[in-house]
Each structure stands twice: as C-alpha cells, then as structure tokens.
C-alpha cells in the first residue's frame, strides 16, 4: 500500500519535537561519527592496558575527561612520574582548544530559557566531533530543537567512547598491528574530511588553510603552545585577510581619486 504513505507527511526539519530531535541526535551518533569515536577510544583503551593500569582508570578518564589528547597526556605523563602540577598544566594546555569550541557553540545551545547551571553540564559534551556536526546541522534545525539534538548526539557519543575504551582495553594484546594502525589513522582522516566539508566561505577557507599550514612548524618549535599560537595567529590572519576585498576596493578608489 505504497499510496498510503503520502498520509504520513514527512515532518520537515522545522516540525521536530524535542523528543524527535533528541532521537535524531542519537541516530546521528550511532552512524559514522560513533564508529570513528569508538575506534579512537579503542586506541585509548589499549594504551591504558599497556601502561598496566586497571580498566577503571580508562573508564574514569574517558567519562570525566572526554577529550582524547588530554587523556593520553595524563596517562603518558603519569608513566614518567611527572608532578601533579605539571600534569594539570599540560592537560589544561592540551585541552585549551576546547575553549573556542564552547564559546562558539554555547550561544546556539542555550537560546531557550534554561537554568544556568545546566549550561555547565551541556559544556561537558562539547568536543571536536560534537562541535563540527552540531554547527553543520543547526542551521536546518529550529532553535528549540538544537539543544535536544546536541544532547542526543553527545550522550550517544559519550557512551560509545566508554564502550570503545573498555573494548580496546580487553583487546589490547589481540589486535594485529594493521588494525591498530587503521584505527589510529581513522581519527585524523575523518577530521580532515569534516574540515574539508566545512570549506565554505572566505573566512573559514582562510582559517582552515592557514591553520593547517602554520600548525605543524609552530608545533615542532613550541609544542602545545605552538598549536595554540597557530590557532590564534591563523584565525586572526584569516579575519584580517577575509576583509581585504573591501579595503582593496577602497584603496583603489582612493588611488583613482
């Protein structure tokens, strides 16, 4: 009875209820983003195992940190016997990249009136994948549907990360090297494609391009500080350059005059 399906008018993106938006986020999280996230945390789980820690160390780290670079730094620095102050500063530095992500996602998450303390809970779910995907999906979602989508998506990925950590821990000794290689490469490959998909508009193209070019040399010279410097410098330069056409036209006009 294919004819009957026209009665079930497909709800446009604007008609989503909060529950539908939440489940939309869950579904999105169970797709490719979840696969990538799970694979990345498989790698972290096996790192925890090879550092001779218990499974709980990995699970607590993933649950409370949920930002892979900082988690890896924590496990590795602990192995070298670094002081707690060093560990704290290194992790703070490694995760400072989350700050601009939270700053730019928070306003669109909490447009509707919610208790302020909840903003601090939502922020824990902001990470690279949730940021990129949310920014991409938000324009097609009604403002009231954005937070439920984000929560469905973020909570799903958070659980997948925990499962990935546990499975990676259990399989640490069993995984053949090519599989491990593939799992580890999945993350940069996926993020590259996400960023390439976001190459829209002069400002973003410049910011992404300049960041990719200035990042590696600055990181080689200055480590994590180099990463932050590359972000701020390339981002600022992108803003300045993306305004150039107006100024060029103005100076051309001035030249003619």
């Amino acid at each position: 009875m294919a004819e009957e399906t026209h009665d079930l008018a497909e709800p446009g993106p604007k008609d989503l209820s909060a529950g539908q938006a939440f489940w939309g986020g869950v579904q999105c999280g169970c797709g490719l983003p979840g696969v990538i996230m799970g694979a990345s945390f498989l790698g972290f789980g096996s790192l925890v195992q090879s550092a001779d820690h218990g499974l709980w160390v990995g699970l607590v780290s993933t649950a409370t940190g949920w930002a892979l670079p900082g988690q890896v730094v924590g496990i590795e620095l602990h192995a070298t016997g670094a002081s707690l102050v060093t560990v704290g500063l290194a992790i703070f530095l490694a995760n400072l990249r989350l700050l601009p992500l939270v700053l730019t996602l928070q306003p669109s998450l909490n447009q509707s009136c919610v208790h302020r303390w909840r903003h601090f809970v939502h922020a824990h779910l902001i990470a690279v994948t949730t940021w990129v995907i949310s920014r991409r999906r938000f324009p097609e979602l009604e403002p009231s549907a954005r937070l439920p989508f984000f929560l469905g998506f973020g909570i799903t990925l958070w659980h997948i990360s925990l499962a990935g950590t546990a499975v990676g821990y259990a399989l640490a000794d069993l995984m053949p090297t090519p599989v491990t290689l593939g799992l580890v490469f999945l993350n940069p490959l996926y993020f590259s494609l996400l960023l390439i998909g976001d190459l829209v508009g002069r400002l973003r193209v410049l910011a992404i391009g300049l960041g990719a070019v200035t990042g590696p040399p600055l990181i080689l010279m200055l480590g994590d500080w180099g990463l932050l410097l590359a972000g701020v410098a390339a981002g600022s330069l992108a803003v300045l350059l993306s305004r150039r056409p107006a100024r060029t036209r103005a100076s051309q006009a001035a030249g003619r005059g």
């Binding site: 700053l103 400002l203 973003r204 960041g211 990719a212 990181i219 701020v232 981002g235």
Partner: peptide
C-alpha cells in the same frame, strides 16, 4: 564571535595537520 570561530577552525586544522 567571528574571530573566535576562525580561531576554532584554525586550531582544529592545525591539530589535524599535526596528526
């Protein structure tokens, strides 16, 4: 906001290029 957004994208690009 645009400036911080540009920094966010540049940071992610630098991070991916490093990886």
């Amino acid at each position: 906001f645009d400036w911080i957004s540009a920094i966010a994208y540049a940071l992610l690009a630098a991070l991916v290029a490093r990886m």
